[in-house]
Amino acid sequence: MQTIPINTYNSPTVILELIYRLKVKDVMTRSLVSVPLGTTMRAVQHLMREKSITGVPVVSDRRLLGIVSMDDIIQALDFGYINEPVELHMTKNLIVLEDDMPVSFAISYFDRYRYHRFPVLSKDKALVGMVTTRDISTRLLWEINHEVENLERMNQSTKVTDGLSRDIQSFAILKHDFENAGFASTEVKKKLKQSNVFPRTIRRAAIASYELEMNIVVHSNGGRITAEYGPHEVVITSEDSGPGIPDIDKAMEEGFSTANEWIRSLGFGAGMGLPNVRSVSDDFSITSSPSGTTVVSTIRFSDNEMKPKTTKDPTKENETNDER
């Protein structure tokens, strides 16, 4: 039996989140080697050797009909039917996964059944991939690495600010996680509301944190939003782990965006994110390298609600702290 030494009920929260967030389609192999009906067992044997694989799905019109495993081939050789067509000897009783299932499902399947691989079907029952324990462990290791990196960074930031007795909120933001996007900014807004900060100031902080959060979701490999609350201001810091902004001046231009079609179709990538953040901030700085981008936005609590902040002050342009 092949098992993955992670259980799906009482592993650390980070791991549980991972195996429920990742879908089978995120880990499966998509480049499929399959054969049509009528192929001989012999031909499959050659295919296995050629491609170094141990199981070949039999497919007709994208429908999965069976799998020929190494074991089926050995049997065919033993009993002398290696030249017969696959439909007579393939394994037909198959256990399959769906591409939208969480990886936790796949892990429990590998625990429960002794198969080395599971075929993956789409919602409309077409064969779209295969998943092996190796596929899962590779992807999990990659993700865990990433999480550990984030944890290390978070520990550093707590150490630095320990002595200041300030209130700090910190949120991990994942790449392309549109599902949870907006969570950090909603929390920042809640927190400020509790402290009776003026609505206009809350709105500025909400805009800054939301845009920074979306930037991490849309453009980065993942990162973190930190909000530090002082008596007179909130400092919102966004840090990500790359790939960095090649031209910060361009990124600060309204309307300039590097987002792809898919992101734009969701209404993001208008090229107004960073300009919006700067226009609502009292202090704003951005630094970027391929290993990551850091943006710091300070929003001061004004004493007078009626004194709205000018949205586009040309003198602000020169204050951009560009430390490339």
Binding site: F178, A181, G182, P199, R203, I207, Y210, E211, M214, L266, G267, F268, A270, G271, M272, G273, P275, N276, S279, T311
Partner: peptide
């Protein structure tokens, strides 16, 4: 339909007219 545009420019207590039919809106 551009959420950053809405974020930066829409007034409070507005009704938003859009085709962005997902929860980020």
């Amino acid at each position: 339909d551009l959420l950053s545009d809405v974020m930066g420019n829409a007034a409070e207590d507005s009704v938003l007219i859009t085709i962005q039919a997902h929860r980020n809106t």
